[in-house]
């Protein structure tokens, strides 16, 4: 069973819909008991960072403990950004601190750029998929995923593996640090490639659970 954290932000249902579509047992919950019993945790998020952190409240500590104990955790969009130390979106806010790095605004393009760099970074961008990142198993060398964000995580963690997309600079699109995974893009809204990524996360959860 995968638990998708139910807190007061948008889009939690879409993540559940996508997992159900691939035949994965999923529960939308904010109950500590369910989170503790889950094979894996998904932290979704369509919200401003500060709003999301305060909406998460005391659940943050439980999610962090579960991740540190080895349970697979997948953060999506703002849920991914919350894996890092801090963000400067509408004020300064602390994240879960599971991965070293800061969430900062996407720099606006210089007038010298041939292409206008719009912010938010909105739409389908090509992500280069490193072979050593488990979420991308079976997806080939590169795929388009759907992004919608104005801030990005500047990853400084030497132990994190990072996949990038090109937005006039190498923009981190996904990270993996041991059992902690995150995607800046929305796999639940990225068509077939996104569903395959969620399937991979489900498989990782099953594998880890069969060991313990």
């Amino acid at each position: 069973m995968i638990v998708v954290i139910d807190y007061d932000v948008g889009n939690v249902k879409s993540v559940c819909n996508a997992f159900r579509h691939i035949g994965c047992e999923v529960e939308l919950s904010c109950e500590p008991g369910s989170i503790e019993a889950a094979a894996g945790i998904v932290l979704p998020g369509v919200a401003a960072f500060g709003y999301a952190v305060s909406a998460l409240g005391p659940l943050a500590e439980l999610i962090k403990e579960s991740a540190l104990s080895g349970k697979p955790l997948l953060g999506i969009c703002v849920g991914y950004q919350m894996l890092f130390d801090q963000s400067s979106e509408y004020g300064r806010h602390s994240g879960l601190g599971l991965i070293y790095g800061s969430v900062v605004p996407i720099p606006s393009g210089s007038p010298m750029d041939s292409l206008r760099r719009t912010i938010p970074h909105m739409g389908w961008n090509l992500v280069k998929l490193p072979e050593n990142m488990d979420l991308f198993a079976g997806l080939g060398g590169e795929k388009h995923f759907y992004f919608a964000h104005s801030f990005y995580a500047d990853v400084t963690d030497p132990r994190a593996r990072t996949a990038f997309t090109d937005y006039g600079f190498d923009l981190p699109a996904s990270v993996q640090k041991e059992n902690v995974y995150g995607t800046q893009f929305h796999p639940e809204k990225s068509g077939k490639a996104g569903l395959k990524l969620l399937q991979n996360f489900y498989d990782i959860c099953k594998k880890i659970n069969s060991k313990s």
Binding site: V9, G10, V46, A47, A48, Y51
Partner: peptide
Amino acid sequence: AAQRFGNQC
């Protein structure tokens, strides 16, 4: 709306 849900929404 932007401050609650993020500009991208």
